[in-house]
Design a protein around this nucleic acid. Structure first.
Length: 275
DNA sequence: GCCCAGGAGAAGG
DNA sequence: CCTTCTCATGGG
């Protein structure tokens, strides 16, 4: 059954900023400006009317999703005050905030985040979305019918661990298919104790940083990808190869909100590149 | 044909 | 510790 949840008087919230700042890959813009996708196995459509956010979602296990969606969209966090703190500390971020003032960090499912960002490596966003979509359709978890389409979440570690990389060929993941299978087997083999992220196949410094930020709520995590490296080089004067210097600057300047600052910078740089 | 994409891993200094 | 090379795939 489809349920509707309304959140009134929501500030610092923009669907395009949230869903197109590179943090998630399963939400797609509809002709009416709303977004359809799924979160934690819940198919949904999200729209906005003024300061009112409307979520139409497929009910899961008979639960009341109000609390779930409030947490998913991080609605209890005051982004206004965070933006003021960041803008005061750094003029570049102050400018970047103007282009993505409605960004929020979604509370994404850890395993989906791990799978997604392993696929993201040396890849581009449109193709990452296609890869995840094909992978989910191929061997993912069925979430239900929504808007006339079957919706699937990414495959569980249990499912992936039993496959061979070649079984994922039609998903077009390239060499990342082997990373996924190996990571799934590592997770299954470790039983109850989840292995350290960096020990997983296909998880290096940048992918770990994204997983911590988007899947484990570590807002201090500051992922440095090609775009952020570009902005740090062009607008802050860092040497392109000085990743550790950039990390230290982010920690010293943005502290507990490094990940939020990074999202403004990422969105800002990509918007500028579109011109 | 080339280069690039939210890099990681292995090899060799 | 560092640098360089390779990895599969699709789009511009």
């Amino acid at each position: 059954m489809i349920k509707e949840y309304i959140f009134e008087n929501v500030k610092d919230f923009d669907l395009r900023h949230i869903f197109e700042c590179g943090q998630c890959f399963r939400w797609n813009r509809q002709p009416d400006g709303s977004y359809s996708g799924q979160a934690w196995g819940r198919p949904a459509n999200v729209s906005m009317d003024g300061s009112r956010v409307r979520v139409r979602a497929l009910e899961k296990n008979g639960e009341n999703g109000e609390r779930f969606w409030r947490e998913y969209f991080d609605l209890d966090r005051d982004y206004g005050s965070i933006k003021r703190i960041l803008a005061e500390k750094d003029p570049v971020v102050a400018e970047a905030i103007k282009s993505g003032e409605g960004i929020r960090i979604l509370h994404q499912e850890p395993w989906e985040t791990i799978v997604s960002f392993i696929i993201s490596s040396n890849n581009n966003i449109p193709r990452i979305k296609g890869c995840i979509e094909r992978l989910a359709g191929l061997c993912g978890t069925f979430c239900g019918e929504f808007e006339g389409k079957a919706v699937y979440n990414v495959p569980t570690a249990e499912v992936l661990a039993k496959l061979e990389p070649g079984d994922l060929a039609t998903a077009g993941l390239g060499y990342r298919a082997a990373y996924l299978v190996k990571t799934a087997r590592q997770v299954i083999a470790s039983g109850d104790s989840f292995p350290p992220l960096r020990s997983l196949a296909g998880v290096g410094p940048k992918v770990e940083s994204c997983i911590r930020l988007f899947g484990f709520g570590d807002l201090s995590s500051f992922p440095i990808d090609v775009w952020v490296r570009r902005v740090m080089s062009e607008l802050y004067g860092f040497d392109e190869g000085d990743i550790s210097g950039m990390q230290k600057f982010a920690a010293d300047t943005f502290g507990p909100y490094g990940g939020i600052a990074q999202q403004y910078l990422f969105y800002y740089m990509r918007e500028a590149a579109k011109q």
